[in-house]
Computed example of a mutant assay.
Amino acid sequence: MKVLFCVYGYSPDAELLQPWLTVRQVASVLIASGWEVHLLTDVDKRPTLAGLQHHYVRTMRPSNANEVRTVLEMVAPDRIIVLTTPLNLMFSGWYRFVRCEMIAFLTYPFYTHAELTRALPHLCREDLVTYGRHALVPKFLWTRTLKKYFSAVIAQSNKTAARVAEAAGSGVAAHGLRAGLDLNFWTPAAADPSRTRSFVRFLYAGSPKAIRGFDLLLDAFRRLGSRDAELRILARGSTDAEVNAIRRRIDSRLGELRDRVEIVGGWMERERYREELRAADVAVLPFVLVPSELPVSVLECIACGTPVIATDIDGLPEAVGSAGMIVRSGSAAALSAAMRDLAMDSDRIRQLRAHCIDNRKNMLDWDSVGREWLQVLSA
């Protein structure tokens, strides 16, 4: 069987980020199963995965449809998997050249206008452009394209799969296939870290962007107003100048509580990152919108035994389950209330930590995820 992944922005630098991480891991399982796997992308850098055959085109936009067509005719795949958003469903003129079954891998949660409206006050101009252009695509147009060209869709949350299935109708099969994790690496700490200190350590992991709820977190921590809580920010990859800029934002928002916030920037090996997750009492990931449907950081925290406070956006509630708390997105008051509840109840944190261990048993490693994809692609 020969399969072609059509993936914008795929490069060796992005292989540890979603959705490219899933593409790489699934491709690895397919190759190991004897499939011939090809990658069509608009980045002229060869992937690191042995056996993944790379094909570069300048762009996958309609203006370059003939170059894409040339690759399609040369590879002659049995299946094509396309990373899909509302916008590229509207503007991918090369679909008409496909002569085999196409499956859409949804890399955008297909937000409703109500969800986007709620997020608007918290988005920067760049995010407004990115998400606004998807929202401007009428629902009937992207569903028409799905029905015309695709036999199935794959989403990493059941919520998105159900939403698209309802819109596209019975002619398009919808599959909710979870993201995987290296469960041999992301393991809990041997001992409960909260027993070694007298305060609660909240952890924020990720870039300090408004779309990830960073400013909301600072407002929530200010509302918390507790000297018995610490906020640790893992701004991995941030330069000294960027860390200083983050510090200025913290100083301006938190006043005298600023000394309860610690920032860790610069390069961080994943072993060090794992230890940071293990050492936290609670991870706070207050996404306003989820850029790639299901952030793998949520799964990493839970697998390490660290409860998560997350928001009610897309697949986050089903990913967190009983291993944390879910609050309304965009609400600093709701976030602060959840943080206060846990800061005042160490027994509750220990209960949630136990739920993390239970939830971890139901997580899938990447081999298992790859086999689920294999079943869908073989049908």
Rank of each mutant, 00 (worst) to 15 (best):
R371P: 00
M344P: 00
D78T: 10
P317E: 10
P307V: 12
A32W: 03
V296R: 12
F105E: 11
E256Q: 12
S157M: 06
P188L: 08
G180V: 13
L128Q: 14
W94G: 09
P47G: 13
A283E: 06
D13M: 11
D215T: 08
A167D: 13
R278S: 05
F214E: 04
M60E: 05
T130F: 14
A76S: 15
R272C: 03
V172E: 05
V164N: 07
V153F: 01
P77M: 04
T311D: 10
I80M: 14
T107P: 01
P317H: 08
V29M: 00
I81K: 03
T84H: 09
C100L: 12
R69D: 10
A190K: 14
G9V: 10
P317I: 08
L181Q: 07
A168V: 09
E15A: 11
T160S: 08
Y131K: 04
Q375N: 09
S63C: 09
L181V: 05
E115G: 05
F185A: 01
C356G: 07
I250F: 13
G370E: 08
I31N: 05
A104D: 10
R69I: 04
A343N: 11
S226Y: 00
V98F: 03
L136C: 12
R79D: 06
N244M: 09
I263D: 04
A152K: 13
E67W: 00
L128C: 14
A191G: 05
T22S: 14
K209F: 09
V264H: 13
P109N: 08
C304G: 05
R272N: 11
A379N: 11
Y8R: 15
E318C: 04
D367S: 12
S63R: 15
S92W: 00
S329Y: 11
S157A: 14
L21H: 14
W94T: 06
L40E: 11
P77L: 03
I81Y: 04
L374P: 02
A191C: 07
E36K: 10
D367V: 13
Y131T: 08
T84Y: 05
I246D: 01
F150V: 10
T59Q: 04
T239S: 15
E230A: 14
S170N: 07
V284Y: 09
M339E: 00
A167T: 04
D358M: 03
E115Y: 05
M1S: 13
L277C: 06
P291D: 12
K361E: 15
D182E: 15
L141K: 11
K361N: 10
A76L: 06
A162G: 05
H54E: 02
V137P: 02
G171M: 08
F199A: 03
S292T: 13
G171F: 02
Q25P: 02
R24V: 06
L17G: 08
D192N: 13
E166R: 14
V284E: 10
R274L: 14
P86T: 12
F105G: 07
I250T: 09
P193M: 02
S92M: 02
A354C: 06
H355I: 00
V43F: 01
R58D: 09
A245N: 12
A135I: 04
S151Y: 01
S207E: 11
